[in-house]
Design a protein around this nucleic acid. Structure first.
Length: 398
DNA sequence: AGTCCACAGGAAGGGCAGGCGA
DNA sequence: TCGCCTGCCCTTCCTGTGGACT
């Protein structure tokens, strides 16, 4: 295939834009975190007692997506672990993201995950709850230590499992003889604390730190700092950083979004063998990120959800929005054509609500008086993405 | 003021699969 | 192998809801 060789040669000959790709990735922890000095100091002060064998207060960290909550929490605990090496106090941090499927979406999995991180080995299902709690207790008490649990997206854990597990974890401190457990709960849902049982609320919310969104200027500085390391030799068209940070600032000052925009824009330019990142690459990046987010979400859906989405798209063809009843009717038809066992109305209602979580649709419950109450659903994707989604669904159902 | 529609959404429980210990 | 425990997906049953209609 001469064309392919041409592509490879072009790639080899082109000067790479990235000197270090990982700098712009989400998992990268920078040496300095600009504009979060107060939060770092605050969290540091709260956790410092761990260095002298005390039990730090439990903390709640609030803030919108991409405001540096996770980054700061990880950074402060890493620094704390470093500092603990000079004292004789043993310190262990476990980071758990409750949004990740199958890592901590149930009480059992949360504990199993922590035990694994502490060096234990428990099956991911099968043991009775009291057994997993006693194993957890054993591992924590194995040596005198302070265990810091960073529970990211803690609201999603509570929504799925209730607050019982948090109650048990906070209560455990009373039974532990040698060790201590400190919980850092991270959430972007500011109203979340109100939904907790008062006992859990008071023991968990001993301290709280609120992360305010970055403004466009602060985002620019963050991007510049990273861009200088990520592509020191490549030039950017004037205004690229400003454009990335401006777009991200519109979306509640999300630094993650800003970094993504810059990274994807650079990738687009690099792939084309262009030596300079252009402003137009940022626009393309914006579109690509949106498309990828939706198409990945659609591909990930189980078959029944895909069938629901397909029916929803059929029902909404030529219409602005549709109702649950319309979708269900199309869905039952679809199932009989494709020989799929149809689920009940109740279940479909839940699946539609799940699709909304992925940002594929948006819906609102409305009352039409005598004509009942229903959910009015509209697709929240543009025509171009719609076509791509339809292709994916077509491939999936043949 | 009362009725009624077409659902929303909570609660309970069934059935299944994965895993453990005897 | 069997009984037991778990999570997960799903059904069934139920109550609640808001506004148009009577």
């Amino acid at each position: 295939m001469p064309e392919l060789q041409q592509i490879f040669n072009q790639f080899i000959e082109s000067k790479p834009i990235f000197a270090n790709r990982s700098i712009l990735s989400l998992s990268f922890t920078p040496i300095t975190i600009p504009h979060r000095e107060n939060e770092i100091e605050g969290l540091g002060r709260i956790l410092a007692p761990a260095l002298k064998g005390g039990k730090p207060s439990n903390v709640f960290v609030y803030g919108k997506t991409g405001t540096g909550k996770t980054l700061v929490s990880k950074y402060v605990t890493e620094e704390l672990e470093k500092a603990s090496k000079t004292t004789n106090q043993k310190l262990k941090t476990v980071y758990i993201n409750c949004k990740l499927r199958h890592s901590a979406d149930t009480e059992y999995r949360l504990l199993a995950y922590i035990i694994k991180e502490l060096g234990g080995d428990v099956p991911f299902t099968g043991l009775p709850t009291d057994k997993i709690f006693s194993t957890f207790y054993e591992f924590v008490e194995r040596e005198s230590q302070c265990l810091i649990l960073i529970i990211d997206e803690i609201d999603s854990l509570i929504k799925k499992t209730g607050d019982g597990v948090l109650y048990s974890l906070t209560r455990m401190n009373q039974d532990l003889k040698k060790s201590k457990i400190c919980i850092i709960g991270i959430t972007n849902d500011l109203s979340f604390i109100e939904t907790l049982d008062p006992r859990v609320r008071s023991s968990l919310n001993e301290e709280e730190i609120v992360f305010s969104p970055y403004n466009a200027f602060q985002l620019q500085e963050i991007l510049r700092q990273r861009a200088n390391i990520a592509f020191p030799n490549s030039s950017m068209e004037a205004g690229v950083i400003e454009k990335c940070s401006g777009l991200a600032a519109q979306e509640h000052g999300d630094a993650r979004r800003a970094l993504d925009l810059l990274r994807v824009a650079a990738e687009i330019a690099e792939r084309r063998g262009e030596p300079v990142i252009k402003i137009s690459n940022v626009d393309e990046a914006q579109e690509k990120i949106d498309t990828d987010r939706v198409t990945e979400a659609v591909k990930m859906q189980p078959r029944q959800s895909q069938a629901v989405l397909n029916s929803l798209m059929e029902a909404s063809a030529g219409k602005k929005d549709v109702e649950t009843g319309d979708v269900f009717e199309k869905y039952t038809n679809f199932c009989s054509i494709h020989h799929i066992k149809p689920l009940t109305h109740r279940r479909i209602s839940d699946l539609i609500a799940e699709l909304e979580l992925f940002g594929i649709i948006s819906s609102k419950v409305v009352s039409k008086g005598r004509y009942g109450r229903t959910r009015v659903i509209s697709l929240s994707i543009n025509d171009e993405i719609k076509v791509k989604v339809q292709t994916i669904l077509k491939e999936s159902f043949g």
